[in-house]
Design a protein around this nucleic acid. Structure first.
Lengths: 85, 85, 85, 85
DNA sequence: CTGCCATTTTACCGGC
DNA sequence: GCCGGTAAAATGGCAG
């Protein structure tokens, strides 16, 4: 069994695990902060008289459109392969 | 119709709306990037032989109030007994 | 305290909880059976030479189309309310 | 081009495909209905004062092998100790 | 056995 | 402040 001069054995796996957890938690913090920023923008929008629900829907649609284009392409692809190119 | 000295009428509300949408979309992009980073860390963890599901559970527990954790466990116990499990 | 002639006190809440759980489990069984039937159809389709992925996508699209129509209507609605009817 | 004596060419593959799609859609409808029933039961449970999340947990545990449950709990413990929690 | 996709669960947000 | 529904995350199952 390996022994260090220090009191506690260095638990490699434990250290690694802790590192993983802390990094994830840090990133999640950042994510949360961004979510909060987004919320602030919507608050501002509301104050300016905009309908937040409408804005959300607009954003959703803008996000969907490219996705749909892509899906159509995928479908085409898949048809091609279905009929043997 | 109102006319400004500039060529195009400045559609204040429209500009503001566009600004709002773009700022939100920008922040959502950043959020997505962070999510991807988190995913990478979990991949790494998996490669290192950790059980990702358990790590997630651990992180979840760390972010709950200890009292809450206790309560949920207690309730689970209570229900188990209630149905004779 | 109420006493029954039976040995065990009837645990009302426990009975109710058990009933809930069992009913849910029963329905989940049925759901699972249906999922299995669907899987069988896809197997059959595959055997008949169809590309299952294509079929899935067709079904998905057929499902989306009405949803999109509805979404557009919702958006319209929301605009109407946004501008005060 | 092949010609049949009948008015419309019977597009065998097309018919079969349509049949497949319709059968799948039908079964998916039924699945959806069951999902809705389950939801209703949980609503009822909630109204009766039960913690739905805990009930879900319970159902999940009931469908796992006891050995599995044990193993997960053990692993969680191991990880907790590893990071000194 | 790994990555992908569907389902399921959790968390959030707006309305009452 | 709760409740309902909606969007995000996580889990599980399937194909390659």
């Amino acid at each position: 069994m390996s022994v260090s001069t220090e009191e506690k054995p260095t638990n490699i796996a434990g250290d690694r695990l802790r590192s993983i957890i802390e990094r994830v938690e840090r990133l999640e913090e950042e994510r949360k902060a961004l979510a909060s920023d987004i919320k602030d923008i919507f608050s501002e929008a509301k104050s300016a008289g905009f309908d937040v629900k409408v804005i959300r829907q607009l954003i959703r649609i803008r996000k969907q459109e490219p996705a749909e284009v892509e899906e159509q392409e995928t479908l085409l692809d898949v048809y091609r392969r279905a009929i043997g190119m």
